[in-house]
Amino acid sequence: KLLSSIEQACDICRLKKLKCSKEKPKCAKCLKNNWECRYSPKTKRSPLTRAHLTEVESRLERLE
C-alpha cells in the first residue's frame, strides 16, 4: 500500500492505542462500548529543516 492511502484509526482508538477496525460511521470498538466515534483530519507533519537536523546532530555528539 502507498503511504498516502493508509487509513487512520478513529480518535479514541488512537488515543487509547487500540486496534481500530476503521469502519465508518462507527468502528467496532466504539460501537461495542457506545463511545462517540470521530475521525479527525490527518495532520500534516512539517518537513525537517536543516537547522533542526544540525541541532539534533550536535546534541547527539555531546551525549556520545
Rank of each mutant, 00 (worst) to 15 (best):
A9W: 01
S46V: 00
T43Y: 06
C30R: 03
V56I: 07
S4E: 14
N34F: 11
K44N: 10
R62A: 15
K1I: 04
R50I: 03
P47D: 08
E55L: 10
T54I: 08
S5V: 08
S58V: 14
K26D: 12
S40W: 03
S4W: 09
H52A: 02
S58Q: 13
K42A: 12
K26P: 04
E23I: 09
D11W: 02
K42F: 11
K22T: 02
C20W: 02
C37G: 07
T54R: 06
L18C: 08
R59A: 09
P25M: 06
A51W: 04
K17A: 03
S5R: 09
C37N: 02
K1F: 13
R50P: 01
P25E: 08
K19Q: 06
L63D: 03
I6D: 08
L48Y: 07
K16S: 03
S46N: 03
I12Y: 13
N33I: 03
P25N: 07
N33K: 10
S58G: 13
S21C: 03
K22W: 04
E61Q: 12
W35H: 13
L63W: 00
L31I: 12
R14D: 02
I12E: 12
A28S: 07
D11P: 02
R38Y: 15
C13F: 01
L31C: 12
L31Y: 13
I12P: 12
E36H: 13
L3A: 12
E57M: 00
C13T: 00
P41E: 10
K32I: 11
L60F: 09
P47C: 05
L53E: 08
K17T: 02
A9G: 09
P25L: 05
C10H: 01
L60A: 13
N33A: 11
L31K: 15
L60W: 00
I6C: 12
L3M: 11
K22G: 03
V56H: 07
H52G: 00
E23P: 04
A28M: 11
K32S: 10
S4Y: 12
K1W: 03
R45P: 03
L18V: 00
H52S: 05
K42M: 13
R59F: 02
H52F: 09
T49R: 01
V56D: 07
C27R: 07
K26L: 14
L31W: 14
C13Y: 06
R62N: 08
L48S: 03
E36F: 12
S21V: 00
L63F: 13
K32Y: 09
K24N: 15
E57I: 03
N33W: 04
I6T: 12
R50Q: 05
C30K: 01
R59H: 09
E23G: 12
T54F: 07
E61S: 11
A51S: 08
V56E: 04
L60H: 03
C30L: 01
K42R: 12
Y39F: 09
L48F: 05
S58M: 13
L63M: 13
Q8E: 03
R45Q: 07
T54P: 04
